[in-house]
Nucleic acid binder design. Structure first.
Lengths: 174, 174
DNA sequence: ATCCGTTATTGACATAGATCAATTCTAGAC
DNA sequence: GTCTAGAATTGATCTATGTCAATAACGGAT
């Protein structure tokens, strides 16, 4: 990150299990993961957790909905490992046109990448079976699969832990 | 749109059924719908169409994947109605930092809105039943439901036309 | 208005994945 | 090391949604 950018964020250590943002919060921030692993998830009205994304080293994570016409955060963000993070104020995300040109370009590219990732995710959720989605997940996030509990991967794929267990079994000895 | 912005796009009339971008294209553009209705969809390896999005008046539509590390377009974009559109070159999407400040802010907000919309879509696909997703669709896009064939709505919701037909029946007389 | 091809509906049946319940496994606390 | 709570696996069902097939309803072209 550029120096100018660095002036505006704050550094923070978070312990495994710590919650950085609650669903319903109106104050929101973005988080950049220097080391460790964060996660965002959606808690549905039946009390079920749905993993929205994992953020390992060098990833940004934030809930964009409060920047649109939705008033408060839909997602909860927590730490799956002890992590070193940068906390980036919302104003810096909204007013990125005030960033130095280099950082502005980076931020725009990050937006585009996020849109691309979500596009692929939507397409996968609509067209692929649970097993195919799991294989795709392994390919896309090879280093994450070992670091998070399987039930959270299942919650990312939109299936139950039981179904994921069966899919894994089927893949290991087909 | 600002005048400066206007210098760079071209206007175009497209007839219903016309294809503006094929999956596999390496040359990509963004389209702004002045009047009419465009659609983007993903064709899976079983030959099934999955509606990615609808773009009625005043919407932008484009396939972002070729702006990430994916080399060519994953989506096909076509016209569901005779439409008047602006064709926006890729360079203008990538180099938005060269836009006048006002238009830059608008474009950033559009990116954020798109991310927010996709976030909600992913959450819905993972946590809601087919019927719930349909009800949500009607609420979110009330004016589109009447204008597009139901099979395309089904393809947007990730269900079959048959299932949508049954869901509709159930809603009309529960 | 009439045709014809596409779209929507309906029914019967199949299946992926969910749910519930019972073990087994594992990692952290002591 | 041993305990213990949560995580993962496995088995037996259940259910939402898909598939296949047949009919009905549109809607554009002539």
């Amino acid at each position: 990150m550029s120096n100018t950018f660095a002036e505006t964020y704050s550094e923070k250590q978070v312990a495994k299990g710590e919650i950085l943002q609650h669903s319903g919060d109106t104050q929101i921030q973005a988080f950049f993961v220097k080391s460790g692993l964060l996660r965002s998830y959606y808690l549905d009205n039946k009390g079920k957790e749905h993993t929205f994304m994992f953020a390992p080293e060098n990833w940004f994570i934030m809930d964009f909905s409060p920047l649109t016409n939705i008033p408060c955060a839909q997602l909860t963000i927590d730490a799956l490992e002890n992590s070193e993070i940068y906390v980036i104020p919302k104003s810096l995300v909204i007013n990125i046109h005030k960033l130095p040109e280099e950082e502005l370009k980076n931020q725009i590219q990050r937006f585009i990448n996020r849109i691309g990732t979500l596009q692929t995710r939507v397409v996968m959720l609509m067209s692929a079976t649970a097993e195919e989605r799991y294989v795709d997940f392994l390919k896309t996030y090879p280093n994450i699969a070992q670091r998070v509990p399987q039930k959270m991967i299942a919650a990312y794929l939109g299936i139950t832990p039981e179904s994921l267990s069966r899919a894994r079994k089927k893949i290991s000895r087909p």
